[in-house]
Write a protein that binds this DNA or RNA. Structure first.
Length: 517
RNA sequence: CGAGGCGUAGCGCAGGCCGGUUAGCGCACCUGCUUUGGGAGCAGGGGGCCGCAGGUUCGAAUCCUGCCGCCUCGACCA
């Protein structure tokens, strides 16, 4: 793996001190080349996104990490509202019997459910501490929701009588629990935060359109907000959501060449309507089962964010998403300098905020500028401004780009907020293009089993476009042989037929294989 | 759930084989002075049930037994 290091100067010289010293690679992180998963874990911790908690498999999301998640929530929520969805909240607990009403659904989740069996503790008669009171056993055990289809559809039964009640377009922001044996920060934790949309429709076509619409919203969000290029498509039967007729997904490629499912949208058919007896009277007063969708993205997107853009100096947050887009660092020696410099920093900040930017002046007196540079670099703030006594005199400010690690000196006399805004837009575009270029160079069309194996065994395996005979058996054999799975069957307007790389049987179109998270 | 590794200050570790004053080091923290344009320097200072429980011993961080927890790699997984 090759990764550029160190600050360079950018732009033409426009000031007498236009050659700030370049910086050596910071020494705070393991490099990606050295150990990719150490690098990932260290970013999570050192950028103060999250840390391991006292509870096995669960993490504490720290304020900076949560601020990023809140930005994701805000932007997605606006997109949901703009397409007619409303938020609601359903219980954390699901009666055990609900889960088993849809056969595929329960089979998919049974192995990772946390179960509440008692409702009371009491003092341990044999010593100190408390024990579960055996007298307080629940008549029916409660499952901590791994997803909410069952509780929601049992509720929808009461909400839907007529075609006039449809469509029902509900979303909830919630936590869910899936008892994972092996966890990784943000990518797979026992408890995680997400949103789950659950919609009910009068017709199949409408439900399918909803599932597709939401997939497109996720794709737009990933590409425009997170600057993560994604592939859209349908999941194979093996990868399909438990209880769905069809699962759509967006898949992103991480820097280590593994795929990450970044969002899913499911067409549930009438499976849950039948399981929970949700019917409506159509215009002809005939009873019909309701058609359903569900769709979700989770805090896993934080993992996608980290592994798409970040470098060996730390996190890189795209400007549209960044809770802090611009950090301003005052530089001074004496108290008298400090007053003037800090005042000017706040002045600059106010102008930028007036232009609609999210700005922080880091005037913490207990830390030195160099420390702050590294800190905000680790945290991935897109632009850093530094202002010292010399800049004050010259009416200049130093501007450093996190994505390219370049810096230059900008004149404060002009409409600099416009310049800053332009730079942020450029950073957003650059990040997307860089990720897209990476994906392109790590996407391989293969036509033989030998090529397939060679591609999947590469240091950075990437996406592999190959023909597949459409059977789960073949998919399973390919996975056994290579660890690669079908990430997505792309939407193709003109599918190109061929022969399966594994079985040699006829194939309708190429599908995307990859090793995945 | 399998295999390996690790639990000693907030974090990262040394010490352990070969038991013996007051358990050490780096970072972080506190105080003071000097510093401040890429994680500052010096001086002083605080902080430990050495994972838990039992055993051996005059004496255990160190040896023995059991337990618990964490990490890595597999298995599993929407």
């Amino acid at each position: 793996m090759f990764f550029a290091q160190g600050w360079r100067n950018f732009g033409p010289p426009n000031c007498e001190r236009n050659n700030p010293p370049p910086m050596a690679k910071n020494k705070f992180l393991t490099s990606r080349a050295e150990n990719y998963s150490d690098w990932y874990n260290e970013i999570v911790k050192k950028a103060e996104l999250a840390e391991n908690s006292e509870v096995r498999g669960c993490m504490v999301i720290k304020p900076y990490g949560y601020a990023i998640w809140e930005r994701m929530q805000r932007i997605l929520d606006d997109m949901f509202k703009a397409t007619g969805h409303q938020n609601a909240y359903f219980p954390l607990f699901i009666p055990k019997s609900f889960l088993s009403k849809e056969a595929d659904h329960v089979e998919g989740f049974a192995k990772e459910c946390a179960v509440v069996t008692h409702y009371r503790l009491k003092n341990d008669p044999n010593g100190k501490g408390v024990i579960v009171d055996p007298e307080a056993k629940l008549e029916e055990e409660l499952i901590v929701r791994p997803t909410s289809e069952t509780i929601i559809w049992s509720t929808y039964r009461n909400w839907i009588q007529s075609y006039r009640d449809l469509p029902l377009l509900i979303n909830q922001w919630a936590n869910v629990v899936r008892w994972e044996l092996r966890t990784r920060m943000f990518l797979r934790t026992a408890e995680f935060l997400w949103q789950e949309g659950h919609t009910a429709h009068a017709t199949e076509a409408e439900a399918v359109a909803e599932a597709e619409q939401m997939l497109n919203i996720y794709a737009t969000f990933a590409e425009q907000t997170l600057a993560i290029p994604v592939l859209r498509g349908v999941k194979s039967e093996r990868e399909r959501f438990a209880g769905a007729l069809n699962t759509y997904a967006i898949e992103a490629l991480m820097q280590d060449g593994k795929a990450l499912q970044a969002g899913t949208s499911h067409f549930l058919g009438q499976n849950f309507a039948k399981a929970f007896d949700v019917k409506f009277a159509n215009k002809d007063n005939q009873e019909e089962y309701v058609w359903a969708t569900s769709w979700g993205v989770s805090t896993r997107l934080m993992g996608a964010l980290i592994m798409t853009h970040s470098d060996d100096n730390g996190l890189i947050v795209p400007p549209v998403l960044a809770p802090i887009q611009v950090v301003i660092i005052p530089i001074y020696r004496k108290e008298e300098e400090k007053v003037r410099v800090v005042e000017k920093c706040h002045e600059v900040s106010a102008i930028l905020q007036g232009a609609g930017l999210r700005v922080k002046v880091d005037d913490d007196d207990t830390k030195k500028p160099g420390w702050k540079f590294s800190e905000w670099e680790l945290k991935g703030v897109p632009l850093r401004l530094a202002l010292g006594p010399r800049d004050l005199e010259n009416h200049k400010i130093e501007v450093a780009r996190r994505d390219t690690l370049t810096k230059e000196v900008m004149d404060l006399g002009v409409d600099f907020s416009k310049v800053i805004k332009g730079l942020l837009e450029e950073i957003q575009t650059t990040l997307y293009q860089k990720a897209q270029a990476f994906r392109e160079t790590h996407t391989h069309r293969v036509d033989s089993w030998e090529e397939f194996q060679a591609a999947i065994d590469a240091d950075i395996p990437g996406f592999i476009l190959a023909h597949w005979d459409g059977t789960s058996e073949t998919e399973e054999k390919i996975q056994e042989a290579t660890k690669a799975t079908i990430r997505v069957i792309p939407f193709e307007e003109n599918p190109e037929p061929g022969t399966c790389v594994f079985s040699g049987k006829p194939s309708r179109q190429r599908v995307v294989f990859a090793k995945s998270y």
